[in-house]
Computed example of a mutant assay.
Amino acid sequence: MTEWVLHFPTWELIRFFGLLSYFMLFTGVGLGICYSMPGWAPKTKGRLYKIHSAASVSGMFLGVFHAMLLVIDTYMPFSWGELLFPFTASHSPLLNGLGTITAYGMVAIILTTDLRNKLNKKVWRAVHLCSYPTFVMALIHGMGVGTDTREGWIILFYVFTFTAVTILLIARAFLGGKRNLAHSTGRR
């Protein structure tokens, strides 16, 4: 009955879902930064938020699926303990531990966003700002243990995504956001 699992192209799927999860995390972070910038029409801002949320949630689920496939992989299987407890993997414990922490970070960010109205605003904001280190940990994890990292297009992909987030953060710092917009127009 489980024989078909042994013929499943798990290693290819692990790589695919890892890269796709990272891309969705990049999309969620990038759109989250864009969403916080001033000047959007309400309808556009609403669309940005919906895509930001969908990308972030999709990235989390794809990342969890990426990790779950590691359990059934026949080439380099991981135990549930290695996946659930950071830095316990027998292969590259530091880099794989960053992957585990990334998954927990994504879950915490999404759960606290769902509970945003019930949380203290400062607590929600502090957790939500963890999106940036979570993104960087995902990048380091992918670059460090991703078996495709030596391929030119993958390196360009990582460089592009990191550069794009950095540029968006710089632009966000210079443009300000709700606070600066309200302050400059005299509204509070």
Rank of each mutant, 00 (worst) to 15 (best):
E3Q: 13
W4I: 04
V5A: 08
L6I: 10
H7R: 02
H7A: 01
P9C: 07
P9W: 00
P9F: 01
P9V: 02
T10E: 08
W11D: 13
E12H: 14
F16V: 11
G18D: 04
G18S: 01
L20A: 15
S21C: 11
S21L: 10
F23E: 10
L25F: 11
F26T: 06
F26D: 06
G28P: 13
V29T: 06
V29N: 01
G30Q: 08
G30E: 10
I33L: 04
I33Q: 02
C34S: 15
C34G: 09
S36P: 08
M37K: 14
P38H: 05
G39F: 05
G39K: 06
G39C: 07
P42F: 09
P42E: 12
P42H: 12
K43E: 13
K45M: 04
G46D: 11
R47C: 04
L48C: 10
L48E: 09
L48T: 10
Y49A: 15
K50P: 08
I51H: 11
I51K: 06
S53K: 13
S53A: 15
A54Q: 13
A54Y: 14
A55C: 06
S56N: 05
G59K: 03
M60S: 14
L62G: 00
G63R: 00
F65V: 06
H66E: 05
A67V: 07
A67F: 07
A67P: 03
M68G: 14
M68L: 15
L69T: 01
L70C: 12
V71T: 10
V71S: 08
D73L: 08
D73N: 15
T74D: 03
Y75E: 11
M76N: 14
M76V: 12
M76H: 12
P77K: 08
P77W: 07
F78T: 07
F78C: 11
S79M: 11
S79D: 08
W80T: 09
E82T: 12
L83G: 09
L83K: 02
L83Y: 03
L84T: 05
P86S: 14
T88E: 07
T88S: 12
S90C: 09
H91I: 15
S92D: 14
S92A: 15
L94Q: 01
L94S: 00
L95P: 00
L95V: 07
L95N: 07
N96L: 08
G97V: 10
G97A: 09
G99R: 02
T100M: 04
I101E: 05
T102V: 00
A103H: 03
Y104G: 00
G105N: 07
M106R: 05
M106E: 10
V107T: 05
A108W: 04
I109P: 05
I109H: 02
L111D: 00
L111A: 01
L111I: 04
L111N: 02
T112L: 13
T113P: 04
D114H: 14
D114L: 13
L115M: 14
L115C: 12
R116H: 05
R116N: 03
R116Q: 00
K118C: 01
K118G: 01
K118R: 05
L119I: 03
L119T: 02
K121S: 14
K122T: 15
W124A: 04
W124P: 02
W124F: 13
R125M: 12
R125E: 14
R125T: 12
L129E: 03
L129I: 12
C130L: 15
S131F: 06
Y132F: 08
F135Y: 00
V136W: 05
L139S: 15
L139N: 10
I140R: 00
G142W: 03
